[in-house]
Design a protein around this nucleic acid. Structure first.
Lengths: 231, 231
DNA sequence: ATAATAGTGTCTCTGAGACATTATGAC
DNA sequence: GTCATAATGTCTCAGAGACACTATTAT
């Protein structure tokens, strides 16, 4: 009878989790974070997946907070992180523990903010489909890649791959890496200019063995950043 | 102790609901469905809100099924319905019963499929903000309107306002209603043509007191429809 | 013929992309 | 000066929008 009750409760209360597809550029390649699951996990212990976990209503203000907490559990990062809802995935088929809902997020961190460890792994998106991920994580990752590429074609999303200041050439390189194709410098600059999200840092240049390059930053009132130290 | 346990469970299991913003064109105006909440509802009984309800894992295959079930509870429709995930809304602030997650959906039905009743109400989007909706339903509705308008500018989403066949002029009228502005006939037709989602119904015309108009339908392999009789 | 709407053609202007040119530093 | 990359200018072409014109039915 006690068991019966438990099963019923399990039915009445679907499993609620978040999963995060975290992107960064590693060595000039768009890459996704995989993290080793806890050895105490009921299922798939020590398997590499995209970071995910249960929602903790006691400590999370909302699902976005859950996502940040879950991420911080896997990698330490400081500063800000870009985070956006992707889609939710639900049903009885996707998690062996039962009927579940996972809210998936896309996230972006600058390469400089990322430290490697033995419990995480960065996989190039060009090779992600060589990995067989548990749950429906492969599907989630592929949707996230589509989303990132799509937004790159019509927005300034890639600015979130930079910590603070960057040159237009550096930004263009990131666009090219994400889209997998060369872009024309002149039209790229015109497009970015028209979007009016960048602020020229007067007198601040990136120096090198050539003509110094103007540095830019994202305007204050632009974008959806979340402080990583929220949670 | 038993009470303590219950509270804990409530914490551990957030409330999981779906909410649906259903659109149709009523008398030439883009309109949203409000439905009267059940008189037995714990909160806001008999208040008009967008249709929503608990997820029932026993009977729903996934959240999309929950959305369809909740909708069919409020209005009877036959045929197909367009349904798309909007966004999820979560946290402790949005539902007086506690920490909750609601997956919101956008839905579209043809005007012809909609029958009115005393427990539902269609509100023009131009007047929706005169209504104060419970929960965060006003926010959800406004995001849904933005989504519908946005997709209308770059896709053929509005074809889902039609049951089966329609003329290009009728389709253009719907675009104009959604966007709130007149469109040029010539460029409208070119754009629709280029998207390659419509199929000309050879020999099938809409007659009237003028030159007959060519009828079209949506190509078979296009779009995200869900059979209403799924659930 | 006329009214009414369907459907197509033409013109212009803008904006994206291809490419060339100039600018400015290090050496 | 040369080299390397930054930054901008020019040209062309395609596509969107404004508008005019033609087509086909009912009456």
């Amino acid at each position: 009878m006690a068991k019966r009750k438990m099963l019923q409760n399990q039915f009445k209360h679907p499993i609620l989790t978040v999963d995060v597809v975290l992107f960064t550029i590693i060595a000039g390649e768009l890459s996704v974070l995989l993290a080793k699951r806890n050895s105490q996990s009921e299922i798939f212990p020590e398997v590499f997946t995209i970071p995910g976990g249960y929602v903790h209503p006691e400590e999370d203000m909302d699902l976005k907070d859950s996502a940040i907490r879950v991420l911080k559990n896997k990698i330490n990062f400081t500063g800000e992180i870009y985070l956006e809802q992707l889609e939710s995935f639900s049903g009885s088929y996707r998690d062996p523990r039962g009927w579940s809902v996972s809210q998936a997020f896309c996230a972006i961190l600058p390469e400089t903010e990322v430290k490697s460890s033995d419990s995480i792994q960065w996989v190039k998106v060009s090779e992600i489909n060589d990995y067989i991920l548990p749950f429906d994580h492969s599907k989630i990752v592929n949707k996230a890649i589509i989303r990132i590429r799509s937004k790159t074609t019509y927005s300034t999303l890639p600015v979130y791959f930079f910590k603070d200041k960057f040159t237009l050439t550096e930004l263009q390189k990131v666009y090219e890496v994400i889209l997998g194709q060369k872009l024309d410098k002149s039209s790229f600059r015109k497009r970015i200019e028209d979007m009016e999200v960048l602020e020229l840092l007067t007198g601040d240049f990136k120096l090198g063995a050539q003509r110094p390059a103007q540095l830019y930053k994202v305007k204050k009132d632009v974008g959806v950043w979340f402080k990583s130290n929220l949670a």
